[in-house]
Nucleic acid binder design. Structure first.
Length: 412
DNA sequence: TCTGGGGTCCTAGGACCC
DNA sequence: TCTGGGGTCCTAGGACCC
């Protein structure tokens, strides 16, 4: 006998989230072709549904969008505002069920199991009611998918966008699977799809017909988990618990590309500052600092440095970064972006001093960091910066090279 | 006319130990 | 000096996600 609803997982995804957030506070732009962009001259972060239908994709360069739609309105991204609305959306979801897992800024998984009796509705009706609740309170539309596993719930949510609800029950599974291509599965990227197609597979129905051993030998553990989820077997639970972050990365690209070591160092130190800010915001410490460089062909190189003990001060991290730079920086090579990553993160429980360490020094460094934080909060992120990264503002890559060589010497 | 800025998880292979 | 088999830890890198 088939159990009608062994599990009930919903996936809730805001439609064109960044753009919808902008429209929520600028309703006069509704219906006009608009995109949200990162830095000026960069790429698309969000687009209206109409533009999406006409082929505008996320990460598309702005020049390409403007070429096709000269009247397009480009809105600068305001992540603080998006985070604010995002938190409100998750709060609304939490009123419906305590089991909400925040998956990204605009997406969440909900465990709806057992709620039919409470709300006197079936799962599809509950999903619809949640969707309408968010629309009424925030003016944002969301798409909701409901099914027996996370993977199927997420795929269901894609079927009816925007502002739609789609339910894939266990009984209807066999009629749904032939409609999904392999690329529709979250977790199957380009490479996996190519491999499966070489095996003669076309749809999700074909994939679930493979034997367990065959899937394991082709795709290892991750593929096998998805195989089970697509067959209606729950593998991944909804995990409302907060998981501590495993790594912190801050990177940024620049134009034009450059091999100028002064500029690259200043740019990298700027990323280090941002990463330290994030570290302290998270109340975490790091024990491994890494440098990342991305070259013209988008290949990246990275080197890391282990610290003897964990830290959350800018000066410790800068020392580590200097060591990496001295040892590994490939002089003369042209790069397009640089970045810094912290690994081996731990919760900040306060400093533990060894016999030979100087608590006074630590306290002064900590006070310095706190003072920097206060200034940044009051006057903006660029109000106080390390001298090394200050060169950045003076020495945009457009400055003539000779000028640069004269004016700035990196003294580390 | 290539292409942003974040993240997670998994595997393979080497070093080292018993 | 040569012989097994098994475990853990670490690192590098791939694949994928929003």
């Amino acid at each position: 006998m088939v159990v009608p609803w062994p599990e009930a997982i919903a996936h809730c995804d805001a439609d064109s989230f960044f753009l919808s957030c902008e429209l929520a506070r600028r309703p006069e732009l509704k219906g006009k072709p608009a995109v949200v962009v990162g830095k000026l001259g960069s790429c698309v972060l969000a687009k209206s549904h109409d533009l999406k239908i006409q082929g505008i994709q996320t990460a598309m360069p702005i020049w390409e969008v403007k070429k096709r739609f000269p009247n397009v309105i480009c809105l600068q991204a305001d992540f603080a505002w998006y985070n604010h609305l995002s938190a409100k959306m998750f709060a609304i979801l939490s009123n419906w069920t305590p089991d909400v897992e925040v998956y990204s800024v605009d997406e969440a998984f909900l465990d709806l199991k057992g709620l039919r009796r409470l709300y006197k509705m079936d799962y599809g009706q509950i999903a619809y009611a949640i969707k309408e609740d968010i629309k009424r309170q925030l003016g944002l539309t969301v798409s909701v998918g409901v099914s027996v596993s996370r993977t199927l719930a997420k795929m269901a949510g894609e079927v009816n966008k925007p502002d739609g609800v789609t339910v894939i029950s266990a009984q209807e599974l066999s009629s749904w699977l032939p409609k999904f291509s392999l690329g529709d599965v979250p977790g199957f990227g380009r490479n996996t799809v190519a491999l499966l197609e070489k095996c003669g597979l076309k749809t999700c129905h074909d994939f679930v017909q493979l034997s367990e051993d065959k899937v394991r030998s082709l795709l290892h553990k991750p593929g096998l988990q998805l195989w089970k989820e697509l067959r209606g077997q729950k593998v991944f639970s909804v995990e409302p618990a907060f998981a501590p972050q495993q790594m912190i990365t801050r990177t940024s690209s620049f134009q034009p590309l450059t091999a100028d070591q002064d500029f690259l160092w200043a740019h990298t130190v700027r990323q280090l500052e941002r990463a330290v800010d994030a570290l302290r915001d998270n109340e975490q410490r790091t024990q491994e600092v890494a440098l990342y460089l991305r070259d013209r062909a988008f290949h990246h190189s990275g080197w890391s440095h282990r610290l003897p003990s964990s830290t959350n001060t800018f000066s410790d991290c800068l020392e580590a970064l200097k060591q990496i730079w001295r040892r590994h920086f490939p002089a003369g090579k042209v790069f397009r972006s640089t970045g810094v990553t912290f690994f081996r993160l731990s919760q900040d429980l306060g400093q533990q001093f060894s016999l030979f360490e100087n608590p006074g020094l630590f306290l002064r460094q900590d006070q310095l960091e706190q003072a920097k934080r206060i200034i940044k909060n009051r006057y903006g992120q660029l109000a106080i910066r390390s001298a090394s990264s200050l060169r950045l503002s003076q020495l945009g890559p457009n400055v003539k090279k000779s000028l640069r060589a004269k004016a700035f010497n990196v003294e580390w």
